[in-house]
Amino acid sequence: MAREEADKFLKARDRTLSAFKEDGEQEWKGPFYFVQGADPQFGLMKAYAIGDCGSDGDEWEEELKLTQQAVRAINRLNPKPKFFVLCGDLIHGMPGTPWREAQIRDLKSVLQEIDPEIPLVFVSGNHDLGNTPTLETTENYCQQWGDDYFSFWVGGTFFLVLNSQLYFDASQCPGLKQAQDEWLNGQLAVAEEKKCKHAIVFQHIPLFLREPEEDHDYFNLEPSIRRELLEKFCKAGVKAVFSGHFHRNAGGFYKGLDMVVSSAIGCQLGEDTHGIRLVAVTAEKIVHKYYSLNELSKSQEMGEELRALLKPN
């Protein structure tokens, strides 16, 4: 892969995103929007069809086509989004499984077609790192997709990308979790001190699916960790957390914090359709809507509700 092509996937370095210059992005410049997707997960649809989601998924033509459709729809959006963030489970093959490298290669081939003026932001998921990540699997992810956690500014809004797998099971890499915890505390202090217009978090695993006090299962974080993060986020003024992992749309609120769970570009585990979410950031609020890929493919403009928010007064 040529240097410029490789750099497209490695914008997150030294715990920030080189696509945006911090000094020029800390000031509010007016409304903007970005695109959030999750779980293209090349290989899951075949595994799900045969009733074995734990298998590697030796066929991913359908996911490839869906991701191509998403890329085409994003490229046609007018005005252009500030960035496109993928909230984890980029591919289905776990670390060390046979089809993993081919799935990564094919996903990168599709994402290479994104308009070069729309930066890509990658969030690590459990299939990217393993359900129990290690130093080795984390380093491998970082070599392929950039840092597993980092922050960046866009138009006066402070964005934090987290490795949620370290909050799910860090038993094989406690030092990595401690390092992220210390980094996160420092970043949340920055959010508080700088009094940014908004602070937004991206992570793969939701804090909760519908209720802050719900029971713990595979699709959310354990209650004590969840409460700790929620309190930290609220104290620092975080307005929203965007995630995937559930392969269905869900979400709820905690003290004004919007927990947004977006369904998948790839395999659906519920009644939702393959899609992506458009998120408008205004001076007063953060507004978002999930669109099916077919809806977006039929229009060269974003949803009327979100488009109206971006118009100057």
Rank of each mutant, 00 (worst) to 15 (best):
S164Y: 09
Q165V: 12
Q165N: 15
Y167N: 13
F168H: 10
F168W: 11
D169K: 05
D169H: 08
D169A: 11
D169W: 09
A170W: 12
A170I: 11
A170C: 15
S171E: 13
S171K: 15
S171H: 14
Q172V: 07
Q172I: 06
Q172A: 15
C173G: 00
C173F: 00
P174S: 04
P174Y: 08
G175E: 13
G175A: 11
K177M: 11
K177F: 08
K177C: 05
Q178W: 09
Q178N: 11
A179V: 10
A179D: 12
Q180L: 01
Q180G: 01
Q180H: 02
D181N: 10
D181W: 05
E182K: 05
W183T: 02
W183Y: 01
W183G: 00
W183E: 00
L184I: 01
L184Y: 01
N185G: 10
N185K: 13
N185I: 06
N185Y: 08
G186W: 05
G186Q: 07
Q187M: 11
Q187T: 02
L188V: 08
A189F: 04
V190G: 03
V190I: 06
A191V: 04
A191S: 05
A191L: 06
E192S: 10
E192Y: 07
E192K: 12
E193L: 09
K195Q: 15
K195P: 12
C196L: 05
C196N: 06
C196K: 03
K197A: 03
K197Y: 02
H198G: 04
A199Y: 01
I200T: 01
V201A: 03
F202V: 03
F202H: 05
Q203W: 01
Q203F: 04
Q203P: 04
H204A: 06
H204M: 06
I205L: 13
I205F: 08
I205P: 00
L207M: 11
L207K: 11
L209T: 08
L209R: 00
L209A: 04
L209V: 13
R210P: 01
R210G: 09
R210M: 11
E211H: 12
P212G: 13
P212I: 14
E213I: 13
E213V: 13
E214H: 07
E214I: 12
E214N: 09
E214R: 08
E214K: 05
D215I: 09
H216N: 13
Y218T: 14
Y218W: 14
Y218V: 14
Y218F: 14
Y218C: 10
F219C: 07
N220K: 09
N220Q: 13
L221T: 00
L221D: 08
E222Y: 15
S224L: 02
I225P: 00
I225Q: 09
R226L: 11
R227G: 02
E228M: 08
E228V: 07
L229Q: 06
L229Y: 04
L230Q: 03
L230F: 06
E231G: 07
K232M: 10
F233D: 01
F233Q: 03
F233Y: 14
F233N: 03
F233V: 03
F233P: 01
C234L: 12
C234P: 06
C234D: 11
C234S: 14
K235L: 07
K235W: 02
A236I: 06
A236G: 06
G237C: 02
V238Y: 04
V238P: 08
